[in-house]
Design a protein around this nucleic acid. Structure first.
Length: 993
RNA sequence: GCCCGGGUGGUGGAAUUGGUAGACACGCAGGACUUAAAAUCCUGUGGAUAGUAAUAUCUGUACGGGUUCAACUCCCGUCCCGGGUACCA
């Protein structure tokens, strides 16, 4: 009846979830005078595994914020959708023959069902799915906008290609150098441009486009038959599957994100991301400020350009190192050194990416025989090659300063090269010292200067005499945007004469052709290459056989939610202006580099092209911590029992596999080899007993379990549901797997103990906790509050149901405040009971204190403390036996973001016809919270010497205690009269003189 | 190696950002109700010493030092744990 019991909870929660859906209470309008608030979750990839308790953590937090902002009077956009393109669905199709579209739709339905049980306030009418053609039409459209853009470095923004053509027609490219300097045409005039063929013009424009097609070094994964992005490769192997990855040249689409490096970096200062998240992005962008220096070679007409961040060390250069792939290697190697160089190049060629990664510290290299000349002192410097210098960064060449750089130092020591010391005592001859604080020596005109200051002096000098210039480099590379996969967005281009042309808007979307062949073609082309009719769709015209990466759909989905069904634009300008930036974005930190950078990039390009009036998509980012699982383990004794004597039992007992499990403490002693002889004896005697047991059970068999001389023990994961307080439920364990049916157990004090370890939640570890299970036992409100109560949102924490009772008890206690069923009355008499009596000051104090703290905690995303605050509140009101409407009604509204179902039910019991969503969050009144102080004079030797400050609610006794303590003041002030003395219950805390 | 976080009772975690450390919850112990159990409610609960007791005193936020009337909080050094990154010149 009116008790907060399992059945009642189920009834309440189901009733309200149904009502919310029927009345469409979460439907959000774009057309309102209310201020907006945009709360966004990172939309999930709908995997087949379903939800575990870790998934909803961020969603619960965002839902609390959304509901809170709603009752605070905001028009709240809180949508949900699915990142539905991606590799796993395609892999699943390969293995099970189920089309990705089918498995994805199934998985989405399952996700929606599970999410629906938790009481989220999503406006499902705004749902987006990236694999829906009406959605990816606009992914393709935005891609074409990027394709039709170039980055004007002078204005630091993207512009239309047509603007670039105008510039080329009037002045050539003298003021807009080609971003990719490897191109064969470097400079051209207006008349050159006009003389070029259409094909050449297009090839030149391609060098400027923000989305461009080029032969690039890509991470080729033979096993997956596809190219991976840099961030999909971890330690030289694929992030999924761990397959080896090699470098390969392929014609790929890329996004020229490097042009935005500086803006992506600067933008970080304006947005509210955590320090670590900003740091990760900064490292990824990897800005370094330095200089390019040209060195003439002793051979005529050759020069070597290096990039360095330390031009101040120019007099400490003892040798040069260039990358093995450097173009000069072929040209400058002397006849005598040719053999060495060839051998080294062959060695480099033979090394796989994984080997290189693993042996980073290995020092290798070869001398070219050529020399460069130090422009400042004419010293001849030998030029070496080594794989520690990367072709892809800077100029692929460095000036080596062994006294200041660890790698250069090791190289010099290894090859016995001389080391010039330019930093005096800062160099000890054993280790390089990268300091910038040393005073330079052996450095000609720099002698006596602090290194830090010399950096700028040398840079200026280089520019003066024209042998170098200041230069900023970034580690970040352009983003590879082609995937050799089926389940992604096709590129909306048509190839004519091998050049890509944008499709017209009216021709979009270019739909993914139906196919059941998901095998990569193997030569680097994706499954679409198998559909030759689709690829060669008209004479002389072709489609691209690649598709876009998952990042494409995710790079702009937050914009589509604003106007999800618009057939004429990716979103209406009015909607974009109204909803603007995402106010809070909640999601996992694993998307720090890829997704967040691409979303920021697309936003910036769309902003530059005039579609958006903001250029950072997310105002604030919260990374919820991962919830890990607690795995449980059992220990199996590996014995000589084996199938050969079991077979004597005949077919009937074929499945019997007698095994022996040891309780944890015993097993661990044996594993750690610390078991005393008694334990071995004990086990042996137990095994004898077990043998007897088997023999009695199966008299027709005369077998024996023999133990190997050295006990061998296996640690196995066991389903966490079979374990309670580390004790194994043996009966259920035997039923769990057929293999264990005939197991015997060696116990510890009559109990089988398991051990546990914190691991990520995964089906293979049998440690997954399903939220449906928790909801079934306690209800969704308890799940929501408990996940918040578990600890700070951003912190990773292991899941444990210890303590969930506490949260449940709170909700019941809260419920009981409204009901006259303190436990003594039989259920039939219990009922809703609320009075309109005037509240006391104590009750008001409890109310306003709670309102204030809860409001502040939500604003600070400190949900665990707000849950505590509610608990304190319920405890206090329940000991005050308060059942007054004026106190309880505001609390229902305050609680509604956390526990919407119970709040909704109480709200309706309180006589409101409308939903609690339309209520407004009560304002707290300062007059009940004033911790304001009153002054109390301190007399020392009969004279008033100071004022003491007390909080209003300090008791008389405490004041008296404090007065006594005030005598100590004299000692501190040494006769001076203090202006103010702050006292906290008996202790003087501050004296202001 | 480098760059960010972090280390508080038996456990998860609070602490107005320098002002009564351990809120709240779990667990544990004791009590009430009950034929009994469960549930519920009440009380206690960092450690140590003294006391029949209420209580008092000391000690205590990874370790060692420092600043301050006052340090979980700030500074220096050390040790652990988590995350990021890896020849980026």
């Amino acid at each position: 009846m009116a008790e907060y019991t399992k059945d009642e909870i189920k009834r309440i929660e189901e009733k309200w979830r149904k009502t919310w859906v029927e009345k469409e209470v979460y439907k959000v309008s774009n057309d309102t005078a209310k201020p907006k608030y945009y709360v966004l979750d990172m939309f999930p990839y709908p995997s087949g595994a379903g939800l575990h308790v870790g998934h909803p953590l961020g969603y619960i937090a965002s839902d609390i914020v959304a509901r809170f902002k709603r009752v605070k009077g905001f028009n709240v956009l809180h949508p949900m959708g699915f990142d539905a393109f991606g590799l796993p669905a395609e892999q699943y199709a390969l293995e099970h023959g189920i089309h990705p579209a089918v498995s994805t739709a199934d998985n989405i339905n399952n996700f929606k069902r599970q999410l629906g049980n938790i009481g989220f306030s999503y406006d499902w009418s705004r749902e987006v799915q990236t694999c829906d053609p009406t959605y990816y039409k606009w992914t393709q459209w935005i891609f074409l906008q990027i394709f039709d853009s170039w980055f004007n470095r002078k204005k630091e923004k993207a512009e239309r290609i047509s603007e670039l053509i105008k510039i080329f027609e009037s002045e050539g490219n003298k003021s807009h150098s080609i971003p990719n300097s490897k191109f064969d045409i470097q400079h051209f005039s207006a008349s050159d441009w006009k003389g070029y063929s259409e094909k050449d013009q297009q090839r030149i424009l391609m060098e400027y486009r923000l989305a461009y097609l080029a032969y690039t070094d890509v991470n080729w994964c033979e096993a997956l038959g596809t190219v991976l992005a840099n961030d999909e490769v971890i330690n030289g192997v694929s992030y999924r599957g761990g397959f080896p990855v090699v470098k390969k040249q392929m014609r790929q689409w890329s996004l020229r994100i490097t042009e935005y490096a500086e803006r992506l970096l600067k933008g970080l200062d304006e947005i509210d991301f955590s320090d670590s998240m900003k740091e990760i992005q900064r490292n990824w962008i990897g800005k370094s400020v330095g200089a390019l220096i040209n060195f003439k070679l002793t051979i005529d007409n050759y020069q070597l350009t290096v990039f360095t961040t330390r031009p101040d060390t120019i007099f400490g250069v003892d040798f040069m190192v260039i990358a093995p792939e450097h173009e000069l290697v072929k040209k400058i190697t002397t006849v005598e050194q040719q053999g060495d160089i060839d051998a080294y190049l062959k060695y480099v060629e033979s090394r796989s990416e994984v080997e290189r990664m693993a042996e980073v510290k290995k020092i290798t290299g070869a001398f070219t025989g050529a020399f460069a000349i130090n422009p400042f002192n004419e010293k001849e410097i030998p030029i070496w090659i080594s794989e520690y210098v990367l072709a892809g960064y800077g100029t692929g060449a460095i000036m080596a300063v062994p006294c200041g750089d660890e790698r250069d130092h090791k190289f010099a020591k290894h090859f016995n090269l001389p080391i010039t010391n330019i930093i005096g005592s800062h160099y000890n001859g054993e280790e390089a010292n990268p300091t910038k604080e040393a005073i330079l020596e052996n450095s000609d005109f720099l002698n006596g200067m602090v290194m830090r200051d010399a950096i700028d002096v040398v840079a200026t000098k280089l520019e003066e005499i024209g042998i170098g210039k200041r230069q900023v480099n970034y580690k970040m590379r352009d983003a590879g945007w082609s995937r050799q996969r089926y389940w992604g967005e096709p590129f909306p281009v048509v190839f004519k004469d091998d050049l890509p042309y944008a499709m017209k808007e009216s021709e979009l979307p270019l739909e993914l052709p139906p196919s059941n062949n998901f095998k990569p073609s193997g030569n680097g082309e994706g499954p679409l290459a198998n559909l030759t009719d689709w690829i060669n769709f008209a004479p002389g015209l072709k489609h691209d056989s690649n598709t876009m990466p998952t990042h494409a759909g995710a790079a702009w989905y937050f914009l589509r939610y604003m106007d999800p069904h618009n057939p004429n634009a990716f979103a209406d300008k009015k909607a974009l202006d109204y909803w603007n930036q995402v106010d809070v974005y909640i999601g996992g930190s694993e998307h720090a580099v890829a997704h967040l950078l691409y979303a920021r990039l697309w936003t910036k390009v769309l902003h530059d092209l005039g579609y958006l009036n903001f250029d950072e998509p997310f105002k604030k980012l919260i990374n919820q911590g991962k919830i890990t699982g607690e795995s449980k383990f059992v220990y199996r004794l590996t014995t000589d029992t084996s199938a050969n004597y079991l077979s004597l039992l005949g077919d009937k007992y074929d499945h019997i596999n007698p095994t022996i499990f040891l309780s944890a403490s015993i097993a661990e002693k044996i594993i750690n080899k610390t078991a005393p002889q008694e334990i071995y004896n004990y086990i042996t005697s137990e095994v004898v007993k077990i043998n007897e047991l088997f023999i009695t059970k199966y008299p027709e068999a005369y077998f024996q379990v023999r133990i190997k001389e050295d006990f061998h023990i296996q640690k196995l994961h066991v389903d966490i549901n079979l374990v309670e307080n580390d004790q194994l439920d043996i009966a259920r364990f035997k039923r769990w797997k057929p293999d264990f049916e005939f197991s015997e157990f060696i116990l510890d004090n009559g109990v089988y103990y398991c051990t546990s370890a914190i691991e990520k939640m995964s089906k293979t570890y049998f440690n997954v906790v399903n939220p449906d299970e928790i909801i079934n036992n306690y209800g969704a409100d308890t799940l929501r509050m408990y996940e918040m109560f578990l600890g700070p949102l951003e912190q990773s924490k292991p899941w444990s149901t210890q303590g969930i009772d506490g949260v449940f008890k709170f909700l019941r206690r809260f419920w009981n405040l409204f009901h006259d069923n303190t436990g003594n009355l039989p259920a039939g008499q219990a009922g809703f009971k609320i009075t309109d009596a005037e509240p006391t000051r104590d009750e008001l104090k409890v109310l306003h204190k709670t309102l204030k703290k809860v409001e502040q905690d939500i604003e600070n995303f400190s949900f665990n403390t707000s849950v505590s605050e509610f608990m304190i509140c319920a405890n206090e009101l329940s000991s005050l036996k308060c059942n007054k409407r004026s106190i309880l009604e505001p609390l229902v509204i305050a609680l509604s973001p956390f526990a919407p179902h119970i709040a909704e039910e109480l709200w309706s019991l309180l006589g409101h016809a409308d939903t609690v969503l339309n209520a407004s969050f009560p304002k707290y009144d300062e007059q009940y919270l004033i911790e304001s102080t009153f002054s109390y004079p301190i007399s020392i030797n009969g004279k008033v010497r100071a004022q003491m400050e007390f909080a209003l609610d300090v008791s008389k006794e405490e004041i008296e205690k404090s007065v006594l303590a005030s005598e100590v003041v004299q000692k501190w002030t040494e006769g001076k009269t203090p202006k103010k003395v702050i006292v906290v219950i008996g202790k003087i805390v501050n004296v202001v003189l």
